[in-house]
Design a protein around this nucleic acid. Structure first.
Lengths: 149, 149
DNA sequence: CTCTATTATCTCGCTGAGCGAGATAATATC
DNA sequence: GATATTATCTCGCTCAGCGAGATAATAGAG
């Protein structure tokens, strides 16, 4: 029963990280008067910003797996807290572009910063082939996890 | 702006995996008439079983970050779907022990099996030092993510 | 061995996240 | 210019999860 392949052990480890990370997200959310979905929304928006893609309401809803009504509600909440700004897209005035307020980013760093820095510090002690192995593994995992959709 | 350290790239990759995994969980949940929390509950219970620890209602609630009322509701739902069995602990009859039904495990494998097998397959091509690097990284990440609690 | 304190779970009533259906407004097509 | 399509929002509803408190079993003090 406790006979586990080394590979499965790693898969379980990865899953534990994802589960635990979800709990921290929820904690961060409730501490700042938000809900887990709101935090995930902010993460998606920051990813979009980093990637240079326009973040519209509909796009966000698709990312979060919400319908349009739910998406509007998330955006209303985040806008109400001042974490977000709505702007009508001048090129296509049906669309609403979303921009994260810098304060929201700071809030996130205050909570997740230590976690991120810890992780980065660990990686500094890895040699090139080791970081490369981690990157390869995570890329594969990411691909595997998106492939079922 | 697109100047990113190699370490941060890996952190973002890990985060993307966790976010994406959360979406798959939600998808699996709704496909089987459940909610994300129910799926997370099953995962926790299977972990407990694997570790050989008793899974009580209160323990589960703590794992999920729910209060007792919410915990009872989750258990009621899962029991109603036949994914779970309640048993009064004979040693301490205040406690309720939870056991996952084998059918629920099969259901999970049908959905997540391909994902897991893909990931395991990737790892088979890694040599010992590489798997060791992945394990070390994930352990560190797990520790970092639990440390903020 | 009873009385009280503690622990584990459950019940009740309520708030609000997210859904379905449909309204509104801007753009695209013919 | 009439119609179809796309993007977002509004309304009413369901149900997950919360707070407060009930219930039942165990532990401890006298």
């Amino acid at each position: 029963m406790s006979e586990q392949s080394s590979e499965m052990e790693i898969v379980h480890l990865l899953r534990k990280v994802t589960v635990e990370f979800g709990l921290r997200q929820a904690e961060f959310a409730s501490r700042n008067g938000m809900h887990p979905t709101d935090v995930r929304a902010l993460i998606c928006l920051l990813d979009a910003e980093r990637a240079g893609t326009d973040a519209t309401a509909g796009w966000l809803g698709a990312q979060l797996g919400l319908n349009s009504a739910g998406t509007t509600a998330v955006i209303d909440r985040l806008e109400g807290l001042g974490h977000l700004t709505r702007t009508r897209d001048p090129r296509d005035r049906r669309r609403v572009l979303l921009a994260v307020d810098p304060r929201a980013v700071e809030l996130g760093w205050a909570f997740f910063g230590p976690l991120i820095e810890n992780t980065v510090t660990v990686l500094r002690d890895f040699d090139e082939s080791e970081t490369e192995a981690v990157r390869r593994f995570l890329s594969a995992a990411h691909q595997a996890v998106t492939a079922i959709a």
